[in-house]
Design a protein around this nucleic acid. Structure first.
Length: 409
RNA sequence: GGCGGGUUGCCCGAGUGGCCAAAGGGAGCAGACUGUAAAUCUGUCGGCUUAUGCCUACGCAGGUUCGAACCCUGCACCCGCCA
């Protein structure tokens, strides 16, 4: 189980490349717990299934006794990572950085174990805040301008005639030095971070430490089939999404994503993955069933088998059999309502009234299975089952003291 | 340093004084179809107590006008060309 080849083999499933594979084998064989660098920029985190791929790999290693060092880049966030940016990035306030750090921890703990024996939290301000200028210059003396400019992104900016602020140029240096300061053995990152982490290897070697191993992971496409999941494209499944949302989003992916998603986002045996892929190819109900398996597997991983079973059931009730789901949330009205529009506004407070009005006039709303298309239709808020849109159900209860019941004309 | 062009709604993009909450496309949302797939069709797509109504909006600030996204002035940012 703890055999290096077996461990690496398991990681291989979601690995794109390994820098220093022989080192990794040796260090695993040595039996000492490895220090795994998980460095993050403290911008507002919204971790999705793609990020979780890396986290699960770390989790596997934690289960074998290795240590994840969660490195909060509080100092470097003030600098601003130029990765993927064609423009200079704005800086964050300390308060925002603190809030992001705590949100990060919450999300990360959905996958990683956080007991101190396998999890350690550090901040890079620990070593940068007190660093004398002389030391910083010494550090900068270890890197050449040509090394930094070999970064395609920097070159592209120069060619486009855009500016590169000097602090941005230095960012990779700081991120690299982090690896030395925290004695990283291994880091598991997206391929976009390869450059910075290789600089980490460089510093470790220069400073007399064995270089960290760098594993880059497989990038999976977004829900819409585009290159990757991202918040700005709104094509991702968030770690904090409800089981319902995770299940639903997986059911709506394009057929050709069944294979990569099953391979990378689940631990289903690879022959099962292959079977699902061919079902997805077949189309029709077989494709649907393959997605059901995929969705159930993912929901199980994050929320347990019980949640997966009930989501599966709920899905089939709602979409396959077109009946009401059994687990409709109950809403108790705390103020009187007289029209359908008021009722919807009460149960979906985040939508604008204009949007709700549209839902009604476009036929998306039913009350007790009767379609209502006039927003001004009066309602009796007794026991009602309201559906607004394809997947939004509410069961209405009037408030206990009766204020939910209007004078019924 | 000189000259020219640009900045429009979530994104792209048309619009050069009233008919503009602003063409068209994309995304989104809803309906039909269906496997919560793809494709297709239809509608919708700033907000507001339900509106032949009001408010907000066309980079920012001010001005001209009965009336400005459209004209003028200043500012900011972007993009070309020349040196």
């Amino acid at each position: 189980m703890n055999d290096p080849l077996t461990v690496i083999d398991r990681l291989r499933r979601t690995t794109d490349s390994i820098v220093g594979e022989a080192d990794l084998r040796d260090r695993l064989a040595a039996g000492r717990p490895l220090r795994i660098k998980y460095g993050v920029d403290l911008t507002a985190p919204d971790l999705h299934l793609g990020h979780a791929v890396n986290l699960w790999m770390m989790r596997q290693l934690q289960d074998l006794g290795h240590q994840v060092v969660f490195l909060l880049g509080d100092l470097t966030t003030r600098v601003g990572d130029p990765t993927g940016r064609s423009d200079t990035r704005p800086v964050l306030t300390p308060a925002a950085i603190a809030a992001n750090a705590s949100s990060f921890l919450d999300q990360v703990s959905l996958v990683l174990r956080t007991d101190p024996s396998v999890f350690e939290v550090r901040r890079n301000s620990e070593w940068y805040d007190g660093m004398p200028i002389a030391d910083l210059l010494g550090l900068l003396g270890q890197v050449t301008q040509a090394q930094l400019m070999s970064r395609d992104m920097f070159r592209a900016r120069v060619e486009a005639g855009r500016e590169i602020a000097v602090h941005e140029l230095i960012y990779p240096v700081l991120q690299g030095y982090d690896s030395f300061a925290m004695r990283s053995d291994l880091t598991i990152v997206g391929s976009d971070q390869l450059f910075n982490e290789q600089l980490g290897r460089h510093f470790q070697q220069r400073l007399g430490m064995p270089p960290q191993v760098v594993i880059t992971t497989t990038i999976t496409p977004g829900l819409d089939g585009r290159a990757k999941q991202s918040k700005s494209l709104n094509n991702y499944i968030g770690l904090t999404d409800s089981p319902r949302d995770k299940f639903g989003k997986l059911m709506s992916i394009p057929d050709h994503l069944v294979e990569p998603y099953a391979r990378v986002y689940t631990e289903l045996p690879l022959d099962t993955v292959a079977a699902l892929a061919s079902s997805a190819d077949t189309g029709g109900p077989a494709a649907r069933d393959a997605k059901l398996r995929l969705a159930a597997a993912v929901v199980t991983r994050y929320h347990g088998a019980g949640a997966a079973r009930s989501e599966l059931q709920s899905f089939q009730q709602t979409f396959t059999h077109r009946t009401q789901p059994t687990d409709i949330p109950t809403v108790v009205l705390d103020h009187p309502v007289t029209t359908v529009l008021d009722l919807l506004a009460a149960i979906r407070p985040t939508e604008t009234r204009s949007q709700l009005r549209r839902l009604i006039t476009q036929g998306a709303v039913t009350i007790n299975n009767t379609r209502i298309t006039d927003p001004t239709t009066p309602v009796d808020p007794v026991e009602l089952t309201v559906r607004s849109g394809p997947r939004t159900w509410h069961r209405i209860h009037p408030s206990a003291d009766g204020t939910g019941v209007p004078t019924n004309g």
